[in-house]
Simulated assay, not measured.
Amino acid sequence: MVDQLAFTQENRERIQAVENSFGPSGKSLFRPGRVLIGEGRLMKLCRRRPQPKVFYLFNDILVYGSIILHGHWHKNQQIISLEDIQLEDLEDGVSMENQWLIRTPRKSFYVSAASAEEKHAWMKHIEDCKFKQLQHAGCQPGFTFATTWIPDRASAICMRCSKTFRVNKRRHHCRRCGFVVCNACSKNRAVICHISTKPVRVCRLCHLSLQDHGALTQDEVRSRGNSDGRNCSDEYELVMPEYEATIDNEADERVDDHAPHKWVESQINSWSPYNYLKPHHQSPNLTGLSSHLT
């Protein structure tokens, strides 16, 4: 009983520390039965290059955000329900080693760990927590996932009209197919229910496909232009998961546009090991975590 009370108090303090690190912009993370399993830094492949992000694994959700002030504070908090996650193991890539793919309804993205051991630990612990959460909730895993974005560097031309990108012809991404496209080829907006409750940027080919399948409202069919989507219909007010309320693709773009390359490179060389939040807690391993997952 004493050990259980001590663990409960320590767990509450850990979660409170995570909440505080995101400041007033972060959402409350504490709820009865929620346990912080582990945390660490992973490289997340963003539009232009990999960026370091802090990740927190709980028994029911995965939380991540951008790192500021040498890792003492975080922003752009993202919350993903484990039932909605699908993992795919990948071979080492040109830009990232020890990588894997995290698919969710809202967005899908590549991450990499400092070592193969940490990669396998992250993947195993996420899968273990997901399995137990599905059993506890008595539900089936999700099957609708967002398309992964093709990185900017993968194409020097628009993948629809083949025109070369220049200073005055910048890159954009279609939220439906993930292609790198120019503004002229992505003026349309559409509501993609598992991605956003509001119209998002889609390329002309995807817009035509959605129109052919009757997936667009009349307002969306008529809409052209306005990158903020104000001409599009907002009538789709769906009840979305909590992590749908925030969008970090645009946040990644803003950070990437202003962050020096040297800062990013220095972060790659200063990995934070996958461990519990507080330094006096032992780093979890496959044996140590099993006691908290049961």
Rank of each mutant, 00 (worst) to 15 (best):
residue 55 F to K: 07
residue 288 G to P: 11
residue 45 L to K: 09
residue 202 V to L: 03
residue 122 W to Q: 02
residue 57 L to S: 04
residue 238 L to S: 10
residue 208 L to M: 10
residue 123 M to T: 03
residue 122 W to S: 04
residue 26 G to L: 02
residue 281 H to K: 01
residue 43 M to S: 00
residue 223 S to H: 01
residue 220 E to L: 13
residue 176 R to Y: 14
residue 69 L to F: 13
residue 88 E to P: 07
residue 213 H to M: 13
residue 259 A to Q: 15
residue 82 L to N: 04
residue 147 T to Y: 03
residue 232 C to A: 15
residue 260 P to G: 09
residue 128 D to W: 06
residue 82 L to S: 01
residue 160 R to E: 09
residue 187 K to M: 14
residue 160 R to T: 14
residue 172 H to M: 00
residue 194 H to V: 02
residue 91 E to S: 01
residue 112 S to F: 00
residue 282 Q to R: 13
residue 284 P to Q: 01
residue 16 Q to Y: 07
residue 3 D to I: 03
residue 277 L to M: 07
residue 188 N to W: 07
residue 80 I to C: 05
residue 159 M to A: 10
residue 245 A to H: 12
residue 128 D to E: 03
residue 225 G to Y: 12
residue 60 D to R: 09
residue 157 I to F: 07
residue 239 V to T: 04
residue 184 A to I: 03
residue 284 P to I: 09
residue 68 I to S: 15
residue 32 P to G: 10
residue 238 L to G: 11
residue 73 W to D: 01
residue 7 F to I: 08
residue 75 K to G: 07
residue 117 E to H: 11
residue 144 T to Y: 04
residue 257 D to K: 15
residue 282 Q to G: 05
residue 112 S to A: 09
residue 139 C to L: 03
residue 238 L to H: 10
residue 243 Y to W: 06
residue 59 N to V: 04
residue 182 C to H: 06
residue 157 I to V: 15
residue 217 T to M: 08
residue 252 D to R: 06
residue 184 A to G: 06
residue 47 R to K: 06
residue 90 L to R: 11
residue 137 A to P: 01
residue 284 P to K: 03
residue 119 K to R: 14
residue 66 S to N: 03
residue 284 P to L: 13
residue 10 E to H: 11
residue 230 R to K: 10
residue 45 L to R: 06
residue 17 A to R: 14
residue 190 A to C: 02
